[in-house]
Amino acid sequence: MKVFLTAIILAFTGGALFVNLGSIPDSFLLSHTASRFYREAVVTETGALNTVSAILYDFRAFDSLGESTVIFATVSGIVLLLSRKTLPVSSAGLSLIVKRTFGILTPFVFLLSVYIILHGHLSPGGGFQGGVLLAVITIIFCIIYGSSFDLSRYPPQRKTLIETTGALLFLGVGIIGIALTGSFLGNPSAWRGVPGTLPSAGSIVPINLGVGLKVGAGLAIIFYSMIQKTLKRQ
C-alpha cells in the first residue's frame, strides 16, 4: 500500500517535473554571461589553462573556500562523533606479497597525487582530486599494513596538523591577495608567469596545494576514524 502510494505520487511528480523542464531555453537568455567571459579570457586573465580550475580557485575561489570549510567541518564532526578515549588499534594486515607490492606502489600513488595537485591549473585535476589520492595512502596503510602502522607512520595529530596547514594556506593566500591586489583571494598578476608552464597562474597553484593537503588529510582522518570503529573486535 505504502509502496504503491509512494510510487504513484512519485510518478506524477516526475511527469510534472519533466513537462515543466521541457521549456528550458536552448541558450542562455543573457548574452554577456560570465561563462562566455571565462572561456574567452581565462588565459589572459588568470594564466591558467584549466578553465574549471580557474573558476574554482580564481573567479569563484570563495566557493572553494566554503567547500573546503565544509570538509573541515565534516572532519571535525566525524572525529567528534567517533572519538573515544581508547582507540583500538589493529596490527593485522594482508599477506607479505601484498605488503611488498604496495611498498613499491605507494610512493607512486603519492607522486601521482602530487602531480595532480600541482598541475591543477594545466590539466584536468586539481586540489580535490589530488587530495583524494593522497587520502588513498592512508587507506592502503590501514588495509594492507594494519591500522597500527598507519598510527605510527602517520599519526592523527600529524594529519590534523596537515589539514589545518592546508586550510590556513588557503586563507593565507587569500589574505596575501588583499595585500597584493586589494581584494581577498585576488590573483596577483606578478605571480602569473608564462601560461602553460608549471609555475604560472598566480595564486591558483598555492590554493591547489592548500586544498590538496586539506582534502587529503581530511579524508584520511575520516577513513581512519571510521576504520577504528569497525576494527574494534580484533
Partner: peptide, 13 residues
Amino acid sequence: SYHLSGWLPPLGI
C-alpha cells in the same frame, strides 16, 4: 559590496 578575487559582480562572487 566587496568583490572577491577582484572580479566585478557578474564574473566573480
